[in-house]
């Protein structure tokens, strides 16, 4: 087995595409695991241990609809005020 072939057993197996092997080496070199900030890791662990089992996430699903409704209401109010004071 030639050098570098070991990590190819699950990847590119055809010997006709050697040009991609250099890319795999580069990926191996660049993609190294990083260490998250220990303060973050510990504080999240603490938060999770204190959080009730049901966690309510804020939904952003209706943000757009809310914005439209508020805009519409503001427009109607403005129109009503304009009609009222223009008479």
């Amino acid at each position: 087995m030639i050098a570098g072939e070991a990590n190819m057993t699950d990847g590119i197996e055809s010997s006709g595409i050697n040009h991609l092997w250099g890319l795999e080496d580069r990926l191996n070199h660049v993609l190294k695991p990083v260490t998250p900030d220990p303060v973050f890791v510990n504080s999240l662990k603490l938060k999770l241990s204190r959080t009730p089992s049901v966690f309510l996430e804020q939904s952003r699903k209706y943000d757009g609809l809310h914005a439209i409704l508020i805009g519409l209401a503001a427009g109607l109010l403005g129109y009503w005020l304009y009609r009222k004071f223009s008479k």
């Binding site: 993609l31 990083v34 998250p36 900030d37 973050f40 999240l44 938060k47 999770l48 959080t51 089992s53 049901v54 966690f55 996430e57």
Partner: peptide, 24 residues
């Protein structure tokens, strides 16, 4: 997450959400 989005702060935020969601 960090390698997918490239920002440590957002990676922390999303990591927290993953575990909160899993916990929930």
């Amino acid at each position: 997450i960090y390698y997918r989005i490239g920002s440590e702060q957002d990676a922390e935020d999303l990591t927290a959400r993953v575990f909160h969601r899993a916990f929930g």
